[in-house]
Design a binder for these strands. Structure first.
Lengths: 222, 222
DNA sequence: GAGATTATGGCAGTAAGTGACAACTAGCAA
DNA sequence: TTGCTAGTTGTCACTTACTGCCATAATCTC
């Protein structure tokens, strides 16, 4: 049950519109739900926002909400989903001669600036969501799991890039997991520093990624 | 709110009994709840076990359950809590001249065999719980968060061992996060391989830990 | 427009979790 | 023993997330 939010429409890139108006309406409703939810979350926090309030804002029944999202979490994590798939394709697009860690770092930057493109001073929704997680342990847990659920995608791309078999070679899996951990540390630091913008996020990520090798190599002093 | 399960008694080592019988009864009830829960979880799975069933087995009210555990999750994670604190003290006990990564690896082994000691063929409760998580995504998420919530303890010990300041030096934090990721990978592999025993867990952990440096260093081929 | 599909709403129900208050029980002192 | 105090438990009422079922209404196909 990797992705529970495929319940309703999800404009997957390259999917030709099968039946026009219906699909469009679903997409609109989905977007409206997300938008209303994000607004309410920002105003009163994730846990103190009832699904009822979200559906009231959009004027649909609560029951309908659950036809679009498997849970409240699922809605919140829809940003995460976009985020990860953007990252995965950015990783696949990095030049083949880059070493794994370098490719990951660059892909992270690529995907970040890709999401920030267009909006001048505004935070991309993904980053807004990260900020929300600060106050919601439930969301922290969910996002960790989400990251974890999609590690396989990253593993696949890494293995293909380097031409190794992920079934026998543990390195791609280790690197993907380590990457996830670093992203999480960066998120934390970014929040602590005021959740300013995607440049700050990139800087936090680099700061941790720089310490990766030094951390696992021998003693730290001397 | 790092640990929500301090709601009721928790035999913290070295705590002199303030009022004897009362404390004892609380501890007994707590243990009984955990035992009944674990049994039910094994039989019907975590999510298909209602709190009502647990409290019925022990013959207390549902309300009382929530005076001992903040949530169903909290009960399940009480094992995790023990696990982590055992590991943290094992880490603190490693000789000072061991390099950080070596100390972590050895401490993991120490803590594992410490928990397995006594029981011959039986799985220690901590490992039973890990096995349960396989079928319960909710528990996976919760345990990830739990691990994450207690990373600070590990960071503190690592920083003290090496004499660095965790507020400015990111290395202890990186290593703790990486360790968490490796533990998680090991858990997964251990489950996939049949969840046999603590030796198998130790082997899985080592297998991933061995790949740590190779994974983050340069290209993988040639 | 008829008829098959598909989306929505309403309703009833389960289960987790919380607050308030009353009833009980252990601890302790006179 | 008695009686007071403080801590523990049960009961009840309530909120919220989430699910199944069936009727209804909108959309698509022809």
């Amino acid at each position: 049950m990797a992705s529970a939010s495929e319940l309703a429409t999800r404009q997957s890139p390259g999917a030709a519109p099968p039946t026009a108006r219906r699909e469009r309406k679903k997409q609109q409703l989905r977007d409206a739900l997300i938008e209303a939810a994000l607004e309410l979350f920002e105003a009163k926090g994730y846990e103190h926002t009832a699904i009822r309030e979200i559906t009231d804002a959009v004027d649909v029944s609560e029951r309908t909400f659950f036809r679009y999202f498997a849970s409240k979490e699922d809605l919140a994590l829809s940003f995460m989903q976009d985020r990860i798939s953007v990252f995965v394709s950015a990783l696949a697009d990095r030049p083949a001669d880059e070493a794994p860690v370098a490719a990951i770092r660059n892909a992270f930057h690529d995907s970040l600036s890709g999401m920030a493109a267009g909006r001048a001073g505004e935070l991309p929704p993904y980053l807004s969501m990260i900020r929300l997680m600060d106050a919601s342990p439930v969301l922290v847990a969910a996002s960790l799991r989400y990251l974890h659920d999609h590690e396989d995608d990253i593993v696949g791309v890494l293995a293909r890039r380097e031409g190794v078999d992920p079934a026998t070679d543990r390195r791609p899996r280790v690197l993907a997991a380590v990457f996830g951990a670093i992203v999480f540390l960066a998120n934390q630091e970014w929040i602590e520093q005021g959740a300013t913008g995607s440049e700050a996020m990139a800087a936090a990520f680099d700061a941790y990624a720089d310490q990766l090798l030094p951390s696992v190599a021998g003693h730290w002093i001397r």
